[in-house]
Amino acid sequence: MLFAYELGWGLPGVWWGLVTGTVIGSLITFAWAQVYLRCMIKAEKTGEKC
């Protein structure tokens, strides 16, 4: 919606919005997975919970 209407890009803005949303979502998921896996590894070594 931002690219299509606010920036006035129309239909190409819809597609760029999809690309941008996917990239941002992937980066957030990757960062969360890194933090979670580090916590799991630490918990396994120390016997604590995450």
Rank of each mutant, 00 (worst) to 15 (best):
K49R: 12
W16N: 02
V23S: 03
G25M: 07
G21T: 09
G10M: 03
V19F: 13
T22R: 01
F30N: 00
A43L: 02
C39F: 05
E48L: 02
W16D: 00
W16T: 10
L11H: 08
A4L: 01
W16K: 08
Q34E: 12
T20R: 05
L37G: 00
W9D: 02
A4W: 00
E44F: 13
V14A: 08
K49A: 12
T46M: 02
G47R: 03
A43H: 00
G17V: 06
C50Q: 03
V14L: 12
G21Q: 04
P12K: 07
W16F: 15
V23M: 07
K45G: 09
A33G: 00
W32A: 11
T20H: 05
F3W: 11
T29N: 11
L18W: 13
G10S: 02
K45L: 15
P12Y: 04
T22M: 13
W16Y: 14
R38N: 11
Y5S: 14
V19T: 10
L37H: 05
V23H: 03
G17C: 04
A33K: 11
W16H: 07
M1P: 11
Y36W: 14
G21Y: 04
G10A: 04
M1E: 13
A33W: 10
A4H: 02
I24K: 02
G17P: 01
I24D: 02
E6C: 06
T29E: 12
K45P: 00
L7K: 08
I28G: 00
G13K: 01
R38C: 08
S26N: 04
I28P: 00
A31Y: 11
W16R: 07
A31E: 13
G13Q: 03
G8P: 01
W15G: 01
V14Q: 04
L27H: 04
F3A: 14
F30M: 13
G13R: 01
A33F: 10
V23C: 05
L7V: 06
A31L: 13
C50L: 04
L7Q: 09
W32F: 13
P12H: 06
P12S: 06
G17M: 07
T20D: 05
F30L: 15
